[in-house]
Simulated assay, not measured.
Amino acid sequence: MIKKLRVFLALGLVVASSLVLVPLQILSMKTGLWPETVILKIWHGMILRALGMRVHIKGALATERPLLVAANHISWTDIMVLGSFADVKFIARADLEGWPLIGMLSKLQRTVFIERERKRTSGDQASEIAGRMAKGDAMVLFAEGSTGDGNLALPFKSTLFGAASMAISEGAAQKVFIQPVAIAYTRLHGVPMGRRHRPIAAWIGDQDLMPHLKALLAEGSFDVEVHFGEPIPFAKGSNRKETARLMEAKVREMMQAALTDPLPSR
Protein backbone atom coordinates (compact mmCIF):
# COMPACT_ATOMS: atom_id res chain seq x y z
CA MET A 1 0.00 0.00 0.00
CA ILE A 2 2.82 2.41 0.89
CA LYS A 3 4.62 1.68 -2.38
CA LYS A 4 1.42 2.25 -4.39
CA LEU A 5 0.90 5.57 -2.63
CA ARG A 6 4.51 6.56 -3.30
CA VAL A 7 4.08 5.76 -7.02
CA PHE A 8 0.86 7.77 -7.18
CA LEU A 9 2.35 10.83 -5.47
CA ALA A 10 5.53 10.66 -7.53
CA LEU A 11 3.66 10.47 -10.83
CA GLY A 12 1.50 13.39 -9.69
CA LEU A 13 4.63 15.47 -9.04
CA VAL A 14 6.02 14.63 -12.50
CA VAL A 15 2.76 15.52 -14.26
CA ALA A 16 2.22 18.74 -12.30
CA SER A 17 5.78 19.98 -12.83
CA SER A 18 5.63 19.10 -16.53
CA LEU A 19 2.42 21.07 -17.04
CA VAL A 20 4.15 24.16 -15.67
CA LEU A 21 7.66 23.71 -17.10
CA VAL A 22 6.94 22.50 -20.63
CA PRO A 23 5.35 25.81 -21.76
CA LEU A 24 8.21 27.74 -20.14
CA GLN A 25 10.80 25.62 -21.97
CA ILE A 26 9.03 26.10 -25.30
CA LEU A 27 8.97 29.85 -24.66
CA SER A 28 12.69 29.77 -23.87
CA MET A 29 13.50 27.90 -27.08
CA LYS A 30 11.48 30.29 -29.23
CA THR A 31 12.47 33.59 -27.64
CA GLY A 32 15.84 33.04 -25.98
CA LEU A 33 14.70 35.05 -22.96
CA TRP A 34 16.84 32.83 -20.76
CA PRO A 35 19.25 29.92 -21.36
CA GLU A 36 17.42 26.74 -22.37
CA THR A 37 19.09 24.64 -19.68
CA VAL A 38 17.65 26.77 -16.85
CA ILE A 39 14.18 25.22 -17.09
CA LEU A 40 15.60 21.84 -18.01
CA LYS A 41 17.69 21.68 -14.85
CA ILE A 42 14.58 22.38 -12.75
CA TRP A 43 12.59 19.78 -14.68
CA HIS A 44 15.26 17.10 -14.42
CA GLY A 45 15.57 17.88 -10.72
CA MET A 46 11.82 17.46 -10.19
CA ILE A 47 11.86 14.07 -11.91
CA LEU A 48 14.79 12.96 -9.76
CA ARG A 49 12.95 14.11 -6.65
CA ALA A 50 9.94 12.06 -7.71
CA LEU A 51 12.19 9.05 -8.19
CA GLY A 52 13.88 9.66 -4.84
CA MET A 53 17.33 10.00 -6.42
CA ARG A 54 20.08 12.04 -4.77
CA VAL A 55 22.98 13.12 -6.98
CA HIS A 56 26.56 13.41 -5.70
CA ILE A 57 29.19 15.08 -7.87
CA LYS A 58 32.96 14.72 -7.91
CA GLY A 59 34.83 17.07 -10.22
CA ALA A 60 33.18 19.38 -12.75
CA LEU A 61 32.24 19.74 -16.37
CA ALA A 62 35.20 21.02 -18.38
CA THR A 63 35.18 24.66 -19.49
CA GLU A 64 37.05 23.97 -22.74
CA ARG A 65 35.08 23.98 -25.98
CA PRO A 66 34.27 22.26 -28.28
CA LEU A 67 33.51 19.52 -25.75
CA LEU A 68 32.38 15.93 -26.15
CA VAL A 69 31.50 14.15 -22.90
CA ALA A 70 32.13 10.39 -23.02
CA ALA A 71 30.03 8.66 -20.36
CA ASN A 72 28.95 5.16 -19.44
CA HIS A 73 25.25 4.38 -19.60
CA ILE A 74 23.15 2.50 -17.05
CA SER A 75 19.60 3.80 -17.30
CA TRP A 76 17.34 6.35 -18.98
CA THR A 77 17.63 8.23 -15.69
CA ASP A 78 21.27 9.06 -16.57
CA ILE A 79 19.90 11.92 -18.69
CA MET A 80 18.07 13.42 -15.72
CA VAL A 81 21.08 12.91 -13.47
CA LEU A 82 23.47 14.84 -15.73
CA GLY A 83 20.85 17.32 -16.91
CA SER A 84 19.89 18.32 -13.36
CA PHE A 85 23.13 20.23 -12.79
CA ALA A 86 25.21 20.43 -15.99
CA ASP A 87 24.76 22.62 -19.08
CA VAL A 88 24.85 19.75 -21.57
CA LYS A 89 22.94 18.41 -24.56
CA PHE A 90 22.56 14.73 -25.37
CA ILE A 91 23.14 12.25 -28.16
CA ALA A 92 20.54 9.48 -27.93
CA ARG A 93 19.33 6.51 -29.93
CA ALA A 94 16.56 7.27 -32.38
CA ASP A 95 13.76 5.19 -30.82
CA LEU A 96 13.77 7.38 -27.67
CA GLU A 97 12.25 10.18 -29.75
CA GLY A 98 8.85 8.46 -29.72
CA TRP A 99 8.73 7.65 -26.00
CA PRO A 100 6.16 9.35 -23.75
CA LEU A 101 7.71 12.00 -21.47
CA ILE A 102 11.29 10.90 -22.22
CA GLY A 103 10.88 11.67 -25.93
CA MET A 104 9.25 15.01 -25.23
CA LEU A 105 11.92 15.91 -22.69
CA SER A 106 14.63 14.95 -25.17
CA LYS A 107 13.17 17.08 -27.95
CA LEU A 108 12.88 20.08 -25.65
CA GLN A 109 16.55 19.62 -24.86
CA ARG A 110 17.50 19.59 -28.58
CA THR A 111 18.80 16.06 -28.30
CA VAL A 112 20.50 14.67 -31.41
CA PHE A 113 18.88 11.32 -32.24
CA ILE A 114 21.10 8.84 -34.06
CA GLU A 115 20.26 5.64 -35.91
CA ARG A 116 23.31 3.54 -35.26
CA GLU A 117 22.23 0.70 -37.56
CA ARG A 118 21.76 2.93 -40.62
CA LYS A 119 25.17 3.78 -42.05
CA ARG A 120 23.63 6.04 -44.71
CA THR A 121 22.59 8.57 -42.10
CA SER A 122 25.64 8.31 -39.83
CA GLY A 123 27.59 10.97 -41.72
CA ASP A 124 24.77 13.52 -41.50
CA GLN A 125 24.27 12.78 -37.81
CA ALA A 126 27.98 13.12 -37.05
CA SER A 127 28.01 16.40 -38.98
CA GLU A 128 25.10 17.74 -36.91
CA ILE A 129 26.84 16.80 -33.66
CA ALA A 130 30.07 18.39 -34.89
CA GLY A 131 28.22 21.60 -35.73
CA ARG A 132 26.56 21.70 -32.33
CA MET A 133 29.90 21.29 -30.58
CA ALA A 134 31.44 24.00 -32.74
CA LYS A 135 28.65 26.37 -31.61
CA GLY A 136 29.54 25.74 -27.97
CA ASP A 137 27.17 22.94 -26.94
CA ALA A 138 28.73 20.34 -24.62
CA MET A 139 27.44 17.10 -26.13
CA VAL A 140 27.05 13.96 -24.01
CA LEU A 141 27.86 10.71 -25.79
CA PHE A 142 26.95 7.44 -24.07
CA ALA A 143 29.94 5.73 -25.61
CA GLU A 144 29.05 2.10 -24.86
CA GLY A 145 26.21 2.25 -27.37
CA SER A 146 23.99 0.37 -24.91
CA THR A 147 23.16 0.19 -21.22
CA GLY A 148 25.00 -1.91 -18.66
CA ASP A 149 23.85 -3.47 -15.38
CA GLY A 150 25.58 -0.88 -13.21
CA ASN A 151 28.42 -3.16 -12.15
CA LEU A 152 30.89 -2.63 -14.98
CA ALA A 153 31.36 -0.26 -17.90
CA LEU A 154 30.94 -1.92 -21.30
CA PRO A 155 33.52 -1.48 -24.09
CA PHE A 156 33.35 1.96 -25.75
CA LYS A 157 32.54 2.01 -29.46
CA SER A 158 35.17 3.98 -31.36
CA THR A 159 32.77 4.69 -34.24
CA LEU A 160 30.69 6.88 -31.93
CA PHE A 161 33.60 9.30 -31.67
CA GLY A 162 33.25 10.10 -35.36
CA ALA A 163 31.70 13.48 -34.58
CA ALA A 164 34.98 14.66 -33.07
CA SER A 165 36.86 13.68 -36.22
CA MET A 166 34.25 15.33 -38.44
CA ALA A 167 34.33 18.59 -36.47
CA ILE A 168 38.04 18.79 -37.28
CA SER A 169 37.88 17.56 -40.88
CA GLU A 170 35.09 20.02 -41.72
CA GLY A 171 37.09 22.89 -40.31
CA ALA A 172 34.59 23.58 -37.49
CA ALA A 173 37.39 23.26 -34.93
CA GLN A 174 41.12 22.63 -34.79
CA LYS A 175 40.66 20.27 -31.86
CA VAL A 176 37.86 18.85 -29.72
CA PHE A 177 38.16 18.18 -26.01
CA ILE A 178 36.82 14.83 -24.83
CA GLN A 179 36.01 14.41 -21.14
CA PRO A 180 35.44 11.06 -19.43
CA VAL A 181 32.47 10.93 -17.05
CA ALA A 182 31.46 7.98 -14.88
CA ILE A 183 27.93 7.42 -13.58
CA ALA A 184 27.40 4.98 -10.71
CA TYR A 185 24.29 4.10 -8.71
CA THR A 186 25.74 3.42 -5.29
CA ARG A 187 23.12 3.28 -2.53
CA LEU A 188 19.56 2.08 -1.99
CA HIS A 189 17.79 3.54 1.03
CA GLY A 190 21.16 4.83 2.21
CA VAL A 191 22.79 1.38 2.20
CA PRO A 192 25.63 0.64 -0.29
CA MET A 193 24.39 -1.59 -3.09
CA GLY A 194 26.22 -4.80 -3.92
CA ARG A 195 26.57 -6.53 -7.28
CA ARG A 196 23.16 -8.23 -6.92
CA HIS A 197 21.25 -5.03 -6.17
CA ARG A 198 22.76 -2.52 -8.63
CA PRO A 199 20.70 -3.83 -11.58
CA ILE A 200 17.59 -2.53 -9.77
CA ALA A 201 18.51 0.94 -10.99
CA ALA A 202 19.65 -0.28 -14.42
CA TRP A 203 17.49 -0.24 -17.54
CA ILE A 204 18.95 -2.98 -19.70
CA GLY A 205 18.41 -3.76 -23.35
CA ASP A 206 14.81 -3.83 -24.56
CA GLN A 207 13.24 -3.70 -21.10
CA ASP A 208 9.88 -1.92 -21.15
CA LEU A 209 9.94 1.59 -19.71
CA MET A 210 6.77 1.65 -17.60
CA PRO A 211 7.52 -1.43 -15.44
CA HIS A 212 11.00 -0.09 -14.80
CA LEU A 213 9.64 3.37 -13.97
CA LYS A 214 7.12 1.91 -11.52
CA ALA A 215 9.83 -0.20 -9.88
CA LEU A 216 12.03 2.86 -9.37
CA LEU A 217 9.15 4.93 -8.02
CA ALA A 218 8.18 2.14 -5.62
CA GLU A 219 11.71 1.92 -4.22
CA GLY A 220 11.91 5.68 -3.77
CA SER A 221 15.49 6.19 -2.54
CA PHE A 222 18.69 5.96 -4.59
CA ASP A 223 22.07 7.65 -4.46
CA VAL A 224 23.88 8.18 -7.75
CA GLU A 225 27.39 9.55 -8.25
CA VAL A 226 28.82 11.46 -11.21
CA HIS A 227 32.63 11.58 -11.45
CA PHE A 228 34.31 13.94 -13.95
CA GLY A 229 37.77 13.14 -15.31
CA GLU A 230 40.27 15.43 -16.99
CA PRO A 231 39.51 16.28 -20.63
CA ILE A 232 41.99 15.38 -23.33
CA PRO A 233 42.44 17.15 -26.69
CA PHE A 234 41.46 15.28 -29.84
CA ALA A 235 43.12 16.82 -32.91
CA LYS A 236 43.94 16.02 -36.51
CA GLY A 237 45.88 12.78 -36.52
CA SER A 238 44.39 11.53 -33.23
CA ASN A 239 43.34 7.89 -33.32
CA ARG A 240 39.67 7.21 -32.56
CA LYS A 241 40.26 3.66 -31.34
CA GLU A 242 43.04 4.72 -28.99
CA THR A 243 40.91 7.59 -27.71
CA ALA A 244 37.95 5.28 -27.15
CA ARG A 245 40.12 2.82 -25.19
CA LEU A 246 41.59 5.65 -23.09
CA MET A 247 38.14 7.07 -22.27
CA GLU A 248 36.85 3.59 -21.48
CA ALA A 249 39.72 2.93 -19.06
CA LYS A 250 39.28 6.26 -17.27
CA VAL A 251 35.51 5.85 -16.96
CA ARG A 252 35.86 2.28 -15.71
CA GLU A 253 38.43 3.39 -13.13
CA MET A 254 36.20 6.21 -11.82
CA MET A 255 33.12 4.00 -11.83
CA GLN A 256 34.80 1.27 -9.81
CA ALA A 257 36.12 3.85 -7.35
CA ALA A 258 32.57 5.11 -6.79
CA LEU A 259 31.18 1.59 -6.34
CA THR A 260 33.98 0.50 -4.01
CA ASP A 261 33.98 3.60 -1.82
CA PRO A 262 30.70 5.55 -2.27
CA LEU A 263 30.52 9.18 -1.24
CA PRO A 264 28.61 9.75 2.04
CA SER A 265 24.83 9.76 1.65
CA ARG A 266 23.16 13.02 2.63
Rank of each mutant, 00 (worst) to 15 (best):
R110E: 10
S146P: 15
K241V: 12
G83R: 05
I57Q: 11
M210N: 13
G32S: 00
E64F: 07
A218S: 05
I39E: 02
L67A: 03
F85Q: 12
F234C: 03
I2T: 15
L217T: 00
R6D: 11
F113K: 01
A153D: 06
L51K: 03
P211Y: 06
E230Q: 05
L9S: 05
A257S: 04
A167V: 10
E253T: 00
V69D: 02
V38A: 15
D261S: 14
A143D: 11
L101R: 07
A182T: 04
H56E: 12
S265V: 14
V251T: 01
I232H: 15
L82I: 10
T147G: 11
H197N: 14
Q109L: 13
V55P: 06
F228Q: 01
V38E: 13
V224A: 05
V226G: 07
I39V: 09
K250A: 05
L105H: 13
Q25D: 07
L24M: 06
F156D: 00
K30Y: 14
L67W: 09
W76F: 03
A134R: 06
F222N: 08
T63V: 14
G237F: 10
T159E: 12
K175D: 08
S265G: 12
F161D: 00
E115L: 12
G52W: 05
V81Q: 06
T121I: 12
I200V: 14
A257W: 10
R240P: 09
G205V: 02
L24A: 06
F161G: 06
I183H: 04
V38N: 15
P23V: 02
E64L: 09
A92Q: 05
A62Y: 04
F156K: 03
V181M: 01
M80K: 08
E128T: 01
M210S: 14
P233G: 00
S75P: 11
Q25H: 09
I200Y: 14
E144L: 07
K250C: 08
E144V: 04
K58C: 13
A167P: 11
L19T: 00
V7Q: 12
A134S: 08
M247Q: 01
M193K: 04
L21F: 09
R187A: 03
H44G: 11
I42L: 14
A70S: 05
A10H: 11
W203Y: 03
S238A: 01
L152M: 14
R240T: 08
K4A: 11
P199R: 04
K214F: 13
R195T: 07
W76I: 02
L96A: 02
L105F: 14
D95R: 09
D208S: 11
I2K: 15
K119M: 13
R196L: 14
F113L: 02
F142H: 04
K30R: 12
S106M: 09
G131P: 06
G98T: 08
T260I: 14
V14D: 03
P233R: 05
V224R: 03
I74N: 07
I42W: 15
E253G: 04
R93S: 07
V69F: 07
L152A: 15
A164Q: 04
L101C: 08
H227C: 13
